Computed example of a mutant assay.
Amino acid sequence: MAKDSVMKTLTAEEDGPRMLSLVSHKLKTPLSIINGYSEAILSQSAKEKFSPFTAKALEEINKQGTKLCSLVDKLLFFNKVESLQPKDLAKKTLNLKNLAKGCANDALSHEEETPAVTATSSIAKRGTFIEIDCPPTLEIKADEELMGFLLEELISNAIKFNNKAEKIIKVQCAHHGDSISVSVRDYGAGIRPQDVNKIFERFYQVDDYFTGQIDGWGLGLCMVQKIVELHNGSINVISDRGLGSIFTVSLPVL
């Protein structure tokens, strides 16, 4: 019996990624239909003259459907990243400043306010300011999709876990001989010492327990760490409660 139990456990562990992928794909079709029809109905709101309640209900259905679709996409991406090996990376030369600016704009566009406004060295959006300090010619050789996800995730977290009215995020890139560093700094609540070593674990969220109040699966930083490892790099976190956090990724110059 013990032997059989062990074999069942191992099989369950091996089937975990396959199950996540299957569940995610099964959710995609009904979600696409829900979102498609809700958008189509909303587009007719001016002609149909819906009641305030109906209009609000439709908007909320569409909003939550879009959010759920994003969660499913992230689960599928997690499954993809987990299965990658260094030889699978599609590496190419990337301009780090352009990549950082694009990721900052994408992170800001997910906030439920006005579109992002881009300046020469900073990006702002109604109380959220992202400063990018990066040499204009600094380049890295990396997988663009993965590195884009990494940067956007760190910037999005810096925005999401900051409850101040004015949020300031600083992205700094530098060349250190045989390595290149990318730091994302915020001045938010910071991370408790007991949580710092856990934030890269799967499904872990910096809440005392998962309440559902924080968007996401708790997989973002787990994927960030995996992407860093795939590029033969390292990631470091410095955080002080009430003062904010600094996430620094170091990558070898190739």
Rank of each mutant, 00 (worst) to 15 (best):
A100E: 01
E60H: 09
A189G: 11
H176N: 15
G190Y: 04
K26G: 02
C222Q: 07
A40S: 11
G212P: 00
E60D: 08
R241N: 03
D88R: 07
K63R: 15
G190S: 09
A142P: 01
N35S: 13
K101G: 01
V196P: 04
E139P: 04
D4K: 08
N197Q: 08
K164M: 05
C69P: 01
R202E: 14
N197S: 12
L20V: 11
S21P: 00
Y204K: 07
E113S: 11
G148I: 06
D240S: 09
T93N: 11
I132R: 03
D15Y: 03
D4L: 09
L89R: 01
R192W: 04
F247C: 00
T93D: 08
E144I: 13
K198R: 12
Q44C: 10
L230S: 07
R192L: 14
P115T: 14
G218S: 09
T54H: 13
C222W: 12
E153N: 15
V237G: 00
Y204E: 08
Q213M: 13
T66V: 05
K92D: 04
A107L: 02
N95W: 06
S122W: 12
N35E: 14
K226Q: 06
L154E: 05
I61W: 00
K67W: 08
D215A: 12
E112P: 05
S21A: 11
N197C: 10
S179K: 12
A165F: 03
D4Y: 09
Y204N: 05
K141W: 02
I130P: 07
I159W: 00
E144D: 12
T211Y: 06
L230W: 05
A2R: 11
K198F: 03
Q194I: 03
I155H: 03
I191W: 01
K26A: 11
M1K: 11
K160A: 12
P52W: 13
P52Y: 10
D133Y: 06
I61F: 09
T211N: 03
L251M: 13
I33H: 15
S121M: 08
K160P: 00
G216W: 00
I155N: 07
L96D: 03
S32T: 10
K226D: 09
D207Y: 09
K49E: 14
D215I: 08
L27T: 04
E153K: 03
L76S: 11
I41N: 02
G220M: 05
V228I: 12
A158G: 04
S250M: 09
V72W: 14
K63L: 10
E39Y: 10
K8A: 14
E59A: 12
I130Y: 03
S38T: 13
K198S: 10
P17Q: 05
C134H: 08
E60N: 10
L20M: 13
M19H: 09
F210Y: 09
P135Y: 08
M223D: 02
R202G: 06
S239P: 11
L76T: 04
I168S: 05
C69A: 10
K101T: 04
I33R: 15
L108W: 05
T248S: 14
L84P: 06
K47T: 11
L154I: 04
V237L: 15
M147T: 09
I34K: 06
L151N: 01
